[in-house]
Amino acid sequence: MAQTMELSAAKPPLRKMRRTLLGTVPVQSPIYELHPATRLFTLLFLGVVSLFIDLPEINILLIIAIFIYLRWAKVDISGLKIYLPLTVTVAIFMFTVSIAFPGADPNFHSFRFLGITFYLEPLYWTFASYWRLMAMLFGTIQYFSTNRERETLVAVRSLKVPFVITYFLSLALRSAGMFLEDMRTIREAERARGLDETSMSLRDRAKLYAMYMIPLFTLAIRRTDEISNALYARGYTPSGKLENEKQRSDYILTQYQFRRIDTILIAAMVITFVLVGVLRIGFGVFAVTQSPLRIFLLSLF
């Protein structure tokens, strides 16, 4: 038993962070007080509600609220830096298109700057659309930054989504991870054989990445057979139904508690969403024409 003792003594240090789909969250994060289903509702709410809100003022406030939520959840916000180039290039693209192709309307208010004619209405519409887009994007990103695959699955299973769909989702997320891991292995192997990507031209690098796809796909195809064999070996059926027509048991769900705060938060999100939708569609509230900033800018002309 000496080896056994040795093996069990060599425990890895306790992990303090949990890896989420897009980053890391401390194990002690208060976000884990919320049931995964509640967290999934934040995705559905924050990722979609801005669809009904054209007012940039509200969308900017929503983005600030999302960042406060991430701070509260103790998420390492520096991980969101990867989205910085995207937020800038999207703005450049949108405003360039808006300036170059404003559409002709004699009622537009125009002004000249650096020899270029700008039209306020399309420009402000682009400004409003940009913040609406950003609010929806960060509403989506917050979810992937704070949740693991397991929590996504628990959430969808709690909502009684059929087992075949939840298992498919789990396997898809897992295979994305395996694909990345395989890619890392192949790249390391190439570097070990002296490949220096930094000295390659963009074209050669693109060719190299395309060539990576062949071994990566070969591995993935082989895994299709292996995983289906493993599933069969452990009694998996796509329907999740047993021979006696009962449903398979779900142990993992029992590890999460649905509390009163979850009910309150979900109800609040659903009611707010419906209310915003009704106000926007039925009464035109949150339309860009009501933007205080726009009204102020128009008053300057």
């Binding site: 990867i82 290039t89 999207v90 693209f93 897992r174 395996m178 694909f179 796909f217 995983i227 599933l231």
Partner: peptide, 29 residues
């Protein structure tokens, strides 16, 4: 089962290729 696994693996591969494709040339939507 093999088809469900193939569907999942292809979705996973698509997630990676799609994400990297979008991040590599980030001109947004």
């Amino acid at each position: 089962i093999a088809h469900i696994v193939a569907l999942a693996l292809f979705t996973g591969i698509g997630i990676v290729v799609g994400t990297f494709g979008s991040l590599a040339i980030p001109i947004g939507f």
